[in-house]
Design a protein around this nucleic acid. Structure first.
Lengths: 327, 327
DNA sequence: CTGAAAGCGCTTACAG
DNA sequence: CTGAAAGCGCTTACAG
């Protein structure tokens, strides 16, 4: 016994499929008793409308596609949470396609979305030029490329990184290390550049060493090992994101280095974990950005968008916690 | 200029839509040069097949629907990560519908999935009886109800909770508090029951007090406040999950209580955060369970499932870390 | 208020 | 190797 279709309901209720459709969709033109009969039959048959067929004929799916890169744990859940909450409010479903390690995979995901979503949210900090099917509303999050045809949401990494630099300068840190993120990532590049520039401005006498990293916890641990084994003189570390900072913290403490007594540590993002680590960081409203992306997209979809190709900047702010405390 | 359809490609390539379809789908019956022409035209027009129409006519969407309750951060990202990885391997897309606070919302989500997914993964630890559209393969994760028609994946909470009890008993803890999870949640109930039972068995002379909680960080903090303000004599706390343990840890430390020197603390789940907190906990392979759910569902969908209504138990194991250390 | 018919964008036997 | 036609499960003008 497979799934009942609208035809089965129509036959059973002695009506045309057109009437069944209207009854089920609450059209005013249906006589109440007819509607009641239809609903009764539908329930009896366990009829559930075929959402796919429905959206094909209505040219509207009430779903939106989200294409994400391979995101680290907490950032991922936070942004999805923000989108989710907003999407639910708007009666929209989320079709997720994440873990894309390269542009081919991402485009693959994009193609699979075509015809099953009304709009797209694309996050591609890696600098991919994602191929958006023409005619589909789309919003980009944190993408590098200038794109005049789609709205974008961006984190103002420069402001955040500069705030860390200023904080280090003001607390007298002079031997500073930056653990960078992956070079192909815009956020990582901007954080590094702005940090170096701001350090030069706020603390010209300080030295800044850049160690490579890739946003992962592991790369933070590796950086810690290097610092310890090479006996680098360091009194402050700015990691490109919180996960890297967390890994580095673990590594340093494992080696007996005290934070913040010996070395200060700051991260970026303010993922939930940061609070537990009492980690000084730059707060990015991750969930909020997700929510905003949905709102912007919804406006685009129903044509109420004010402007279509603007960049919306999200300005983060420094959160000072124990890991950069001075005594 | 809206989206090109297969008809546009056919016209441009001077072929029937049937041939275009075959060419694009790699049927062997198409002459190479014809195929080449079709592909060239498709590219030129920026043609992207309409996945919705495709799945309607093929009765196959290559997507699977995931219905989740309102999950706390890390658990959510971990389980989705596990599903995601496996789904990508199998060429399946994930359609997510989460944040369901009640059964009506969940059923709503379920209906919206019908006809756009080939199968369903449903997580309903709240004891809802979710209405699965008939004829759709489905796998339940962590659901309470006995269901003879669908496979289920379950965490063996009893084993985990008993392991904590034994550990407390062996380390001489005698004044024990359990911060419970929400009562309507199976996992929470099983953990509480098994813990109480095991404590009675392993440490008959110990006292066990149950404080209420709801799996949230906040409820952990509240429990800590009660313990401190009421001056409860406590030497060990078992929280129903890691987030609660984390909140409690924060609360206790804020009040100057030392963990583990004054009070030992254990959680459940082993979310990534636990490692950073050096929290003793019960490791549930969250991502692995997600992956297994996909695998089971895929077997169901292609008919290679060995058994269709069995329960697969995932046995967690105790991870002893610093928060239950003795001196 | 209700029904017959066309159409949404594809795929796939069935002929040729 | 290719095309005309039917069909996937709905919705919606268009008549009546």
């Amino acid at each position: 016994m497979s799934e009942a279709t609208i035809r089965d309901v129509a036959r059973e209720a002695q009506l045309s499929v057109a009437s069944v459709s209207r009854a089920l969709n609450g059209h005013k033109s249906v006589r109440p008793e007819t509607r009641a009969r239809v609903i009764a039959v539908a329930d009896a048959l366990g009829y559930v409308p075929h959402a796919g067929a429905r959206s094909l004929s209505m040219a509207r799916s009430n779903a939106i596609g989200v294409v994400l890169p391979d995101l680290h744990g907490e950032f991922f859940s936070e942004i999805v949470r923000g989108m989710d909450r907003e999407a639910m409010l708007l009666g929209l479903q989320l079709l997720l396609s994440n873990m894309h390690a390269n542009v081919a995979q991402a485009n693959e995901g994009l193609r699979a979305m075509h015809g099953r979503v009304d709009g797209l949210i694309i996050m591609s900090p890696q600098g991919w030029k994602a191929t958006v099917p023409r005619g589909i509303p789309a919003v980009f999050v944190n993408s590098a490329e200038a794109d005049d045809t789609h709205p974008r949401l961006r984190i103002d990494n420069r402001v955040g990184a500069a705030a860390v630099a200023r904080h280090f300068a003001e607390t007298g840190r002079r031997a500073v290390v930056h653990i960078a993120g992956p070079d192909h990532n815009v956020d990582a590049r901007e954080r590094r550049e702005a940090f170096l520039q701001a350090m030069a401005e706020f603390a010209p006498q300080a030295t800044v060493t850049v160690l490579e990293g890739d946003f992962s916890e592991d790369s933070g641990e590796r950086a810690a090992q290097r610092i310890v084994s090479e006996g680098l003189r360091v009194d402050a570390i700015f990691a490109a994101n919180d996960m890297t900072a967390a890994g580095c913290l673990l590594g340093l403490r494992g080696a007996g280095v005290r934070v913040p007594e010996d070395i200060a540590m700051a991260g970026f993002d303010d993922v939930p974990l940061a609070r537990y680590l009492d980690l000084t960081t730059v707060r990015v409203g991750i969930a909020e950005i997700g929510a905003r992306a949905i709102v912007r997209l919804a406006q685009l979809m129903d044509g109420t968008a004010d402007e279509t190709s603007s960049v919306e900047w999200h300005v983060p702010e420094l959160v000072v916690r124990r890991t950069t405390q001075t005594f």
